[in-house]
Design a binder for these strands. Structure first.
Length: 415
RNA sequence: GUGACUGUAGCUCAGUUGGCAGAGCACCUGGUUGUGGCCCAGGUGGCCGUGGGUUCAAGUCCCAUCAGUCACCCCA
């Protein structure tokens, strides 16, 4: 029989990797709930239209990367490539806006993009996602950024760089894009790399994000978005920066920071690590006023971010596996049942450990006990079975004593 | 979608000009009555990614293919 293998870009997780993921989830729940965020669980599969309308028809994500297929009644559905669109749909559909004020939601789970896998990039990857809906206030942008920093530092991740930019709005961005295109017109093959020559027509903003040294050099004097903001955007951005700085978070103002999803306006930010290879962005987000309206909801503004869990996991230290409390050794066949029921009693008392299903030599079982790292080894031999006791051995110092079966739990708990 | 590199034991990897498939770790069993770690002895474990080709002979050379990794691209 040939064996079935997993699909390219999909992963199986076991400890210690899987432990990092559950830790991220529990820290997220703890931190985000302090800011008033509510746990949200939404579908993985959505109508394709949701993503093409929100992310942008012309983006790479929509054009080349989505897992899209017809369902059994030929309706086009898509495995979500990101979380925001689905959360917006849920917000609108469940009329969460009716409560008034700011609605704060967080979610986490798998996302799917059909890309060539590499370090920090899977076809099924996982994000933790936060969205704050219903307020255009720049202080909310600042709070979201500060909360992200709080979450990351709670995970023990320092050494991260925060980059912030403003992309302007529907009014001022087109003016800026015109100025940028104008500037790039003067750039030719001898200045820009092949990709950028293409990008200067298709997506001029991306030229600013190019890592090729030559491109960086020749675009150093390119017009900056931050010099072209309208009064509203300028004021909004100043308040965000001032509030973030005022709360003690240092960041880099990066006028070249670009987002790949079309819905972002005004504040955008990204958290970058230098320690995880080429896919260095561990979190990214920004403001998306107008998105909810464009999905048929009320004209409510929003701001949020997503963290890449695989990328964060690469930065997290491995935690020591927890040691069990006991390991039972049984020397006589008839004692196996006693071993099983003793283990059961101890587990119900809150202890952890295992009992054997078959007898083997004491040496072998002791080696097994040692390997599990159990604090205590409980020996049930001929003598113990007769006297209804267990020989309790402290594996750290080797001390051992006979304890009546009924008192083993309290004995272990007392240690 | 493009490129480069890598596929040998559960893991990390050796394997010379083509000439018997190897090591370390892990695992199992022992080292005399019922005692772990350290040490010692022995043992299990291989479609050498897969399929062709060259050759008396292929892990080794050639072609194809699949898989993995990293990078481009894109993004979290």
């Amino acid at each position: 029989m040939t064996k079935v293998s997993k699909i390219k870009g999909f992963a199986d997780l076991f400890p210690p990797e899987s432990v990092k993921f559950s830790r991220m989830e529990s820290v997220a729940k703890d931190i985000f709930s302090r800011y008033g965020y509510q746990e949200t669980r939404i579908p993985i599969l959505e109508k394709t239209e949701l993503f093409s309308r929100s992310i942008g028809e012309e983006t790479d994500v929509v054009q080349k990367e989505m897992y899209t297929f017809p369902d059994r009644k030929d309706r086009l559905v898509t495995m979500r490539p990101e979380a925001t669109a689905g959360v917006m749909r849920a917000y609108i559909e469940n009329k969460l806006f009716a409560a008034g004020g700011v609605t704060r939601l967080y979610a986490n789970g798998p996302m799917f993009r059909y890309e060539r896998p590499q370090k920090g990039r899977m076809r099924q990857f996982h994000q933790i996602d936060c969205e704050a809906l219903g307020s255009p206030d720049p202080l909310l942008d600042a709070e979201v950024i500060l909360m992200l920093e709080h979450f990351l530092s709670e995970l023990g991740l320092t050494k991260l760089t925060f980059e912030i930019n403003s992309l302007g709005c529907r009014e001022c961005r087109p003016v800026y894009l015109a100025a940028l295109s104008d500037f790039l017109k003067g750039m030719h093959k001898e200045h820009l790399c092949e990709d950028c020559m293409r990008r200067k027509l298709s997506n001029p903003l991306r030229v600013l994000d190019c890592k090729v040294p030559g491109c960086k050099e020749y675009t150093a004097d390119a017009p900056k978005i931050t010099d072209h903001l309208c009064d509203g955007c300028r004021e909004h951005f100043d308040v965000v920066m001032e509030a973030v700085t005022g709360s003690g978070l240092s960041y880099t103002l990066n006028p070249r920071l670009v987002r790949g999803l079309d819905y972002y306006v005004r504040t955008t930010f990204e958290v970058v690590s230098g320690d995880i290879g080429s896919q260095s962005s561990v979190a990214g987000g920004g403001r998306y006023d107008g998105l909810i309206g464009s999905l048929g909801g009320p004209d409510q503004p929003g701001v949020g971010f997503a963290c890449g869990m695989e990328r964060l996991a690469m930065l997290m230290p491995e935690t020591e596996p927890v040691k069990p409390d006991f390991h039972i050794v049984v020397l006589e066949q008839p004692g196996l049942a006693s071993g099983l029921s003793l283990a059961q009693e101890l587990r119900k008392a809150g202890l952890s450990g295992e009992a054997p299903y078959a007898v083997s030599s004491m040496k072998s079982q002791m080696r097994q006990a040692n390997k599990t790292g159990a604090r205590f080894c409980l020996v049930l031999g001929e003598e113990e079975l007769r006297t209804e006791t267990a020989l309790v051995k402290n594996m750290a110092d080797g001390a051992q004593e006979s304890i009546p079966l009924g008192r083993v739990a309290t004995h272990l708990l007392g240690e």
